[in-house]
Design a protein around this nucleic acid. Structure first.
Length: 157
DNA sequence: GCCAACGTTGGC
DNA sequence: GCCAACGTTGGC
């Protein structure tokens, strides 16, 4: 039996990797490397399923917001950038025998005709339970409920 | 560039 | 296992 699709939100700084970069990547698929937070890692490693849908969020930019949707195209596998001393994501405590960090592959799904800004998300009372909108929340990957997913998709119309 | 909030580290 | 110090995130 197929597992029910889950929904997520993943943050990326567009200067580093934007939704247009994903669009322009061969096969429109890229490894989501560099996650170095245990909570975020656990969600990728333990909960993300093939075909799950992801809000692509641009952070640390003006303005921040959701710019489109990606799809999980490969479930979690070790993040080898942690083993590369030349990588900004290098972590000497991770090894191929005992990997500490994981990544998934995401595939471009769609880009919204306009960004749904953080400001706009904040104005929706139905969304105030989203971790994204909670004071002090810094999670780079977070779950989205089906209800939240539908509300935001409607905003994009 | 500021800084609040949060996670991680490491001495004890 | 506590907790102070430090580093990072990310909106503003």
């Amino acid at each position: 039996m197929a597992i029910k699709t889950r929904y997520w939100l993943m943050k990326s700084e567009p200067d580093v990797f934007s939704i247009d970069d994903l669009f322009d990547t061969p096969n429109q698929t890229e490894a989501w490397d560099g996650v170095r937070n245990y909570q975020a890692r656990n969600m990728m490693r333990d909960e993300m399923q093939l075909g799950d849908l992801v809000f692509f969020y641009h952070s640390s930019c003006k303005p921040p917001g959701i710019v489109g949707i990606a799809e999980i195209s490969k479930t979690a596998y070790p993040d080898h950038t942690a083993w590369d001393p030349g990588s900004p994501y290098y972590d000497p405590k991770s090894s191929s025998e005992n990997p500490r960090w994981f990544m998934v592959d995401v595939k471009f799904y769609k880009k919204y005709p306009r960004m749904i800004t953080l400001e706009e998300l904040k104005q929706q009372p139905e969304l105030n339970e989203m971790p994204l909108l909670k004071r002090g929340s810094r999670l780079s990957i977070m779950p989205v409920t089906q209800n939240q997913w539908e509300i935001i998709n409607k905003l994009a119309e």
